[in-house]
Design a protein around this nucleic acid. Structure first.
Length: 211
DNA sequence: ACATTAATTGTGT
DNA sequence: ACACAATTAATGT
């Protein structure tokens, strides 16, 4: 079962031997929506490899204000954890399942081993590091240069892509938390977007019409 | 089916 | 940002 899924998603990137090893040492886990996978200050001895679903990676400041950095999707791995994993320091981010997901955890000591052993693994890690970096830059740009209305719209469209569903089940309050703003602001801006015909509002639900 | 209550959303200041 | 009004969903009777 795990084997099939691993092959389905990774056989293009990884050689057969590596997939075999992953099957041997990795632990498969089903994660429920909203489950906390990784909290601030956690240290890890495992690295997650996403089979499907989505994980929200966010950051928190001293006041407990949270802000979303990016999402992990199928085939992604959390490369931030690499840095802190190898030096065995603490996590500076939080990871929460955005929807039901399936993940394979790999023990950290295997990662170094594979780094020299498998070319495909090396490429995978480097690639994913690059992707993560550019997502971070995008997140910075969004925070620094975009107005809240643009940020909100980007948040919605991003989420639609990740969820693969044009109707989002969420509340204004939750969005406000993710964007680190107040609910009232979100409500007003959402109303504005609705008037522009870009979205349709319901209770606990938002239909995104243009994306 | 109805009333009560809680949660979510809308609006004015 | 705050307060309050309006609307909707959830629950019990």
């Amino acid at each position: 079962m795990i084997q099939e899924k691993l092959k389905e998603y990774f056989s293009v990137v990884f050689e057969e031997d590596l997939i075999q090893e992953i099957i041997e040492v990795g632990t498969y886990k089903k994660v429920k929506e909203n489950e906390l996978l990784l909290d601030l200050g956690d240290k890890f001895d495992k690295i997650p490899l996403m089979l499907n679903g989505a994980i929200k990676i966010s950051r928190e400041d001293d006041n407990g204000d949270e802000i979303v950095l990016y999402f992990l999707e199928r085939g992604d791995t959390c490369t931030i954890t690499f840095g802190s994993g190898l030096t065995s320091s603490k996590s500076k981010v939080r990871g929460v399942a955005e929807k039901d997901s399936e993940v394979v955890f790999i023990p950290i000591h295997k990662l170094e081993e594979w780094l020299v052993k498998y070319k495909s693994w090396r490429n995978f890690v480097i690639d994913s590091y690059n992707i993560r970096l550019s997502e971070m830059l995008e997140a910075i740009d969004t925070l620094a240069f975009m107005k809240m209305d643009q940020r909100l719209y980007k948040y919605l469209t991003d989420k639609v892509k990740i969820m693969r569903d044009s109707t989002l089940n969420t509340t204004h309050q939750k969005i406000a938390q993710d964007l680190n703003t107040s609910r009232v602001v979100v409500s007003r801006l959402l109303k504005q977007l609705e008037n522009e015909g870009k979205i349709k509002l319901h209770r606990n639900k938002i239909e995104v019409l243009e994306f």
